[in-house]
Amino acid sequence: MKTSTPLPTKTTATTIRINTRRRVADRGFTLAVIACGVLAVIPLLSVVWTTVSKGLGRIDVAFFTQSMRGITDAGGGALHAIMGTLLITCAATLVAVPIAIGSALWLVEYADNATTPAIKTLARTVRTVIDVMAGIPSIVAGLFVYAVIALTVGPGYRSGLAGAFALVIIMVPVVERSGEEVLARVPAELHEAALALGVPKWRVILKVVLPTALPGLVSTLLLGVSRIVGETAPLLLVAGFTDSMNYDLTSGRMVSLPVYVYSQWQNKGVDAAAYDARAWSAALVLLLGVVLLHTLARLIVRGRKQ
C-alpha cells in the first residue's frame, strides 16, 4: 500500500486532554456514594448517642446488683433482667446452634452430593422450610410456643425455657442459612487432601471442615445471638414479666432486658423520670453487651489464628 494516511495529530491531542465532563461525572458519582454511606450511618449514630447520653444516668452499682422487687419510685436495678437475658439467650443458643449447624452440615456435606432422588427431595424440602421459617414474624414464633404450652402444660405456664424455645425458632433459620454459606466456602481441595490420607468422612468434617470454617462459624453464631438478644414480643408472651430475681429457667416468670425496657416505659409509676432512666440504662447495657460479645469473639478467632 502506497497511500499514506495523514498523521492524526489533532485527534491525539484531543483524546489525551482531560475530559471535563467525564471528570465531573466521576466526582459526582463518588460524592453521591459517600453521601449514601453517611446517610446510612446517621440514624445508627443517633441511636447510639441517644442511648449512651440518656442511659449513663442509672449506670451505678445498684443497677447491676438489685432487682425491681418492691421498688415503686427511684432506685432499684436490672440484675434480674440481665440474668434473664443471659440465661434465656444461652439456653436458646445451646439448643439452636447444634440443630442449625448440624442441618447445614447435612445439606452441604451429604445432601448436596447425594444422587438418590429421595434425599434430594428431602434436602429441597428442608431448605424451603428454613426459608419460610426465616420469614416468620417473631410474635408468631412466640404464639406458637404459647399454643403448644397451653395445650400441653396449661395456659398459665410461663418460664424462661419457654421463652428460649420461642427464640430457638427464630434463631435456627438465621444460623442455618449463614452456616451453610460458611461451610460451602471450605475448599473442596481440603476435603480431597484429607480423604486421600485415608480419613473417614465424619472425621474429615470434624477435624478439617469445622476447624477451617471456624472464623466464619463464629460470625454465624454472633449473627444468631444478635438476632435474638433484642427480641421482646415472644418473650413477653411466654416468659412473662417479673420484678424479682429468677435463676430457674424451668419455672416461673423470667424477664429479659428488652422486656424490662418495655415494661419500665409502659408501666410508669408516679416518678416517671426514674422509670425512663432505668429503661434507657437497660437499653445501654444491652447495647454494650452485644458490642462486648462481638469484640470477644473477634479476639478469640484472631488469637487462634496466630
Binding site: E189, L190, E192, A193, A196, V208, P211
Partner: peptide, 13 residues
C-alpha cells in the same frame, strides 16, 4: 496409597 494433587493443598489451620 499416597496422593499429591495438582495444586498444593496444605491444611490452613
Amino acid at each position: 496409597v499416597g496422593m499429591v494433587f495438582q495444586r498444593p493443598n496444605p491444611f490452613p489451620t
